[in-house]
């Protein structure tokens, strides 16, 4: 039964969730040093005079963040917070809440990286398929070498080059940020245009960095599918080239590409931290980078939690979609 399968698969996702939360809870507590003392020492070293009874302050902060409780108690409290979607306060930007911080950054990342990834997947896969297709137009072949080169260049390098050429030498595009500083965001054409304008360079660097890998992967898949008997019979049946290409070759070669797409989407946030940093893009990657620099444990924890959740969730969705994509995969236990 399909429902059985969904329940079974969902419980695995739940297990991943429990493990992710637990590891997320344990990791910072296993690292040496006490975050409260660390923060206070920083404060002391930066302020000129004494700030009073350090020990008392540490105690009060410990109580404030619940660090004076036994570990099992802290663990349960942590679960309570996670389930209430309360990820605590940011240490660096107190009293900003981690949840708010992530919620503000999330749409930028999903918009920029999601769009860029889907676009490079669609174009790259189709072009890669045509690269291997014997009856494809000749100009497709010109892309083979550039794709190979692009797939070998890391995205942050492409980002730096684009930033230099597009924003510094020619000043066509903004050098950073998510939208113009002098703009009040709203749902109007100017806002959308401003956001798109700012997203162009970072999106382009991600698209260029990924498109080669998609194309090369798909080319290899199509080459192996071309030798299949069903392609031969499709040609013998007198089907049109377009029909054979899309429904016999691409349709069968697509399966591993889709698995890769789901994994890429799951890793979206962490995948392009450097692109967001290069373009000071106000997304999750940039926020994570800031948090790591300021040792903002709760923000790091929150983002890592969201990350592991998004990977577990995309894998869950992918598993549910597989039987629709490939009829040979069934959820029934035989």
């Amino acid at each position: 039964m399909y429902l059985d399968y969904v329940i079974r698969r969902f419980s695995i996702t739940l297990l991943v969730f429990v493990l992710a939360v637990s590891i997320n809870f344990a990791l910072p507590r296993l690292t040496p040093g006490d975050p409260v003392e660390q923060q206070l020492n920083q404060l002391i070293s930066t302020s000129s005079g004494s700030i009073g009874d350090v020990k008392a302050i540490v105690e009060s902060y410990r109580a404030r963040f619940g660090l004076d409780q036994p570990v099992w108690r802290q663990y349960l409290d942590y679960w309570g917070m996670v389930l209430r979607l309360d990820l605590g306060f940011s240490l660096a930007n107190y009293p900003e809440r981690v949840g708010e911080s992530i919620a503000a950054a999330m749409p930028w990342t999903l918009g920029l990286l999601g769009m860029a990834t889907l676009l490079s997947f669609a174009v790259g896969t189709l072009m890669g398929g045509m690269l291997a297709w014997p009856r494809a137009p000749r100009w497709i072949g010109w892309f083979a070498a550039p794709f190979l080169v692009l797939s070998a260049i890391p995205y942050f390098l492409i980002g730096v080059v684009l930033l230099f050429v597009g924003a510094i030498v020619y000043r066509i595009f903004p050098a950073g940020g998510g939208f113009p500083f002098d703009m009040t965001p709203g749902f109007d054409g100017a806002t959308i245009l401003g956001i798109a304008w700012h997203a162009t360079l970072p999106a382009l660097s991600i698209i260029l960095a990924q498109i080669g890998a998609w194309a090369i992967g798909m080319r290899g898949m199509i080459v192996s599918v071309l030798g299949e008997d069903y392609i031969m019979l499709a040609e013998a049946k007198g089907l049109s080239q377009r029909r054979i290409f899309l429904w016999y070759a691409v349709r069968n070669a697509l399966l591993p590409q889709l698995t890769k797409l789901a994994l890429t989407l799951g890793h979206l946030v962490s995948g392009a931290i450097l692109v967001e940093v290069i373009f000071s893009y106000p997304g999750m990657g940039y926020r994570l980078y800031q948090a790591i620099q300021s040792k903002d444990f709760f923000v790091i924890q929150g983002i890592v939690l969201i990350l592991s959740m998004s990977i577990a969730l995309t894998m869950f969705i992918l598993d549910l979609l597989y039987p629709l994509i490939d009829p040979r995969i069934t959820n029934k236990r035989s």
Partner: peptide, 28 residues
């Protein structure tokens, strides 16, 4: 017409048998 050698692998695995007939009719 052609009856292929590798019957096991001559049909498109992701299309139903009916769709592979429909394909043929549509192409002609």
């Amino acid at each position: 017409s052609l009856v292929p050698q590798g019957a096991m692998s001559s049909l498109n695995p992701v299309l139903t048998i009916g769709a592979q007939f429909a394909d043929l009719f549509a192409a002609h």
